[in-house]
Structure formats: C-alpha cells, structure tokens
Design a protein around this nucleic acid. Structure first.
Length: 202
DNA sequence: TACTAGATTATCT
DNA sequence: GATAATCTAGTAT
C-alpha cells in the first residue's frame, strides 16, 4: 500500500465516465477506489483490481441478452447506478451500469484490495483474511454489505461513489476470458491489475 | 495444486 | 422445473 487512502467525493468519477462502453469502463475502473459510507459514518473503501464487461450486443453471457426483464432492469437504466443480482441461491454480485438508458450493459466488480473499514468488512464476511475479503464477486458484495435493496443505487452520491486513483501501482493486463460463464466464453472482457495478490486467479 | 460436490433460491421458460 | 456472471470444504494427486 503506497500511502494512506483519503476518501474524497470531489474526486469521484463523473456521469460521462459511466456512459462509455462497458469495455472502456471495465478497463478504466482497474485501480479506482469504491467508497461506501455506512450508517454510523463509517467508510468502507477498496481498490478495484478485477472487472468483467458484459455487453449489450453479441454477448450471450450478459444478463441483458434476452432483453429487458424484471431482474435485469437496472442494466437498461443510464450508466452511473449499480446493478445487484442474486445468484446460486446465496450470493449477491455488484455491477456498475454503463452506457445511456435503454442499451443494457454493465461491468461486474470481481475483486478489490481493502483499504478502509477493514474491520467492518471482516465482520460482514465473517473472516479475518484480508487477502480474500473482497476476492470474487460474491465476497466483494458481501464485504461491502450490498443486498438486493441496493439495486439501482446511484454511484454519484457521497454515500456511494468510485474515486479516481491517485497512483498507478498496477498496470492493467491484456483482457482475458471471463469466469464462470457457459455462453460467449471466448470474448476477452476480463481485466486485471497485473501482479495484484487480491485477484481471483491468473 | 487440482478437481468435485454441496449449499440454496430468485428468476425465467 | 431447470438454471445460474459463486464459494467453500473436502478429497485426490
């Protein structure tokens, strides 16, 4: 960890950023910091080290592929909100919605490096291993305390935002195959912070 | 280190 | 009624 992280809402990513294509956003999010304020003024923050893009077109693995449904509605909103879904009967996953309204794309946050509120993350995860607190989309969402009620939440409020990175401690790897999908497997839409010990796997 | 099974339920066909 | 953008613990190698 290079230096202490200081949350600063004025450095949060703007609406325009989220209106870009999911591939651009997924790559650019590596190294940025997800910040969430919880009730008693405690702050949870973690540096994003792994993302996957889910496209509006030609991507059968995307939840948006079958068109608008009850579940994926958040993906069809304008970029800059989050899409939370429940999977395998027990896990939530957290996505950043991208592109303008009606398109249907998002970026799945798969792993992050805990920076602040680590005690709270440990409590949420019921684990003391800092290396795995936010490793994997289900774990990341759990560490941050995301639940289905957080679906559609804006990323442009002081309660929840993504802050620009202030150092480039990692380079972003060339895109590779996404994890855990059975359709459109060959699309290279997964981005990693090179050499980070917090990513799910090489 | 590598693979496998089991947990468990909202959502869509 | 089948499936799923997962995780963990267990057993095998």
């Amino acid at each position: 960890m290079p230096k202490e992280f200081i949350p600063d809402f004025s450095k949060s990513l703007t609406k325009d950023f989220y209106l870009q294509s999911p591939e651009i956003v997924a790559r650019a999010l590596i190294g940025t910091i997800l910040v969430r304020q919880v009730e008693d003024n405690e702050t949870i923050a973690a540096r994003i080290v792994e993302t996957e893009a889910y496209l509006a077109n030609g991507d059968l693995a995307s939840h948006s592929a079958p068109g608008l449904t009850m579940r994926n509605a958040a993906m069809f909103e304008a970029g800059g909100i989050i899409y939370i879904y429940f999977i395998y009967g027990m896990h939530y996953c957290m996505n950043v919605v991208t592109e303008p309204e009606g398109i249907g794309s998002a970026v799945l946050l798969r792993a992050a490096e805990p920076l602040m509120g680590i005690d709270l993350m440990m409590k949420n995860r019921n684990s003391k291993n800092i290396n795995t607190l936010c490793k994997g989309p289900g774990n990341l969402a759990k560490a941050f305390g995301f639940v289905k009620e957080d679906n559609f939440t804006s990323l442009q409020s002081s309660k929840l935002y993504i802050q620009k990175s202030y150092t480039n401690i990692h380079t972003v790897t060339a895109p590779c195959k996404r994890i855990g999908i059975s359709k459109s497997e060959d699309l290279l839409l997964r981005f990693l912070a090179d050499g980070s010990p917090f990513i799910t796997r090489k």
